[in-house]
Amino acid sequence: MSKPAVALFDYGSGNLRSAHRALERAGGDVELTSDLDTARSADGLVVPGVGAFAACMAGIVEHGLDAVVRERASAGAPVLGICVGEQILFTRGVEHGVETAGIGVFEGSVERLEADRVPHMGWNTVEAPAEMRLFAGIDPAERFYFVHSYAAKTAPPGTLVATADHGEPFVAAVERGPVAATQFHPEKSGDAGYALLSNWIKGLK
């Protein structure tokens, strides 16, 4: 049986090498691409991201990926956002008092964490609802690797949300139908991250 086709989109931001390896290990036939037709037609589209919300959105808009992500979300085609790739799926991001429009798949704002130490860097547990497919079969005591200063803090309407805590609760992962995203880096989260990516790959056509 052929492996699901996964488009890992390169728009100039993201931990592409380790994400590529992790997605292949999890069972995907992974293509690193900047081609919109490939992103549109793949069984699954992965949107990575590191750094600033505004910079990531600038790269996404420049490449035209925002329209493709919205198309896939509307059509029920699987999308996975990772780290800032999760954040830009929300309506807006606010950094240093500047608001930047996101792709808008999920309603809500991404804002700076209110914590004694920022960024939130290192391993943390995640509390996920039992029906969340990303976390199927994963022990609640497992830890995932985070590196971020900003996060969404409220659950978007109509979604399943897993939360973590760093000074305050925040959205660690979000899922609505075939569109899912994680604030943490599954590709850097060892066996727990492998299990999560495997769950996502299994949900592809």
Rank of each mutant, 00 (worst) to 15 (best):
Ala172Cys: 04
Met1Gly: 14
Ser13Phe: 11
Gly28Leu: 03
Val69Tyr: 02
Ser74Asn: 13
Val50Ile: 13
Val68Met: 06
Leu196Phe: 12
Val171Ile: 07
His63Thr: 14
Arg117Ile: 15
Gly93Ser: 01
Glu142Gln: 14
Ala77Gly: 02
Ala162Leu: 07
Val30Leu: 07
Leu113Cys: 03
Asp191Met: 00
Ser109Leu: 08
Thr159Ser: 15
Arg112Pro: 01
Val47Ala: 02
Glu114Val: 15
Cys56Gln: 05
Phe146Met: 04
Trp123His: 09
Ala101Glu: 14
Ala181Tyr: 07
Ala181Pro: 00
Pro4Ile: 04
Ile60Lys: 11
Val98Gln: 12
Asn124Phe: 01
Glu131Met: 04
Leu204Met: 13
Ser13Pro: 00
Gly85Thr: 04
Gly12Ala: 01
Cys56Ser: 08
Pro119Leu: 10
Ala73Asp: 11
Leu196Met: 15
Gly122Ala: 03
Thr159Val: 12
Leu65Arg: 06
Ala181Lys: 09
Phe53Arg: 02
Asp35Gly: 08
Gly59Cys: 10
Val126Ile: 14
Ala42Leu: 10
Ala39Glu: 08
Ala73Tyr: 03
Asp10Pro: 00
Ala7Tyr: 14
Val47Ile: 15
Gly167Ser: 03
Phe53His: 02
Thr91Ser: 15
Met121Leu: 14
Ala151Pro: 04
Val6Tyr: 08
Ser198Ala: 15
Thr154Asp: 12
Ala181His: 08
Gln183Cys: 10
His148Lys: 07
Ala55Tyr: 08
Arg92His: 12
Ala54Cys: 01
Glu107Arg: 13
Arg117His: 13
Val179Phe: 07
Pro178Gly: 08
Ala141Tyr: 00
Gly137Gln: 03
Thr38Glu: 13
Gly158Leu: 09
Ala42Val: 05
Ala54Glu: 05
Ile60Cys: 11
Val61Glu: 15
Tyr194Gly: 06
Glu114Lys: 15
Val6Gln: 03
Asn15Gly: 04
Tyr150Trp: 09
Phe90Arg: 13
Thr33Gln: 09
Leu113Ile: 03
Tyr150Ser: 02
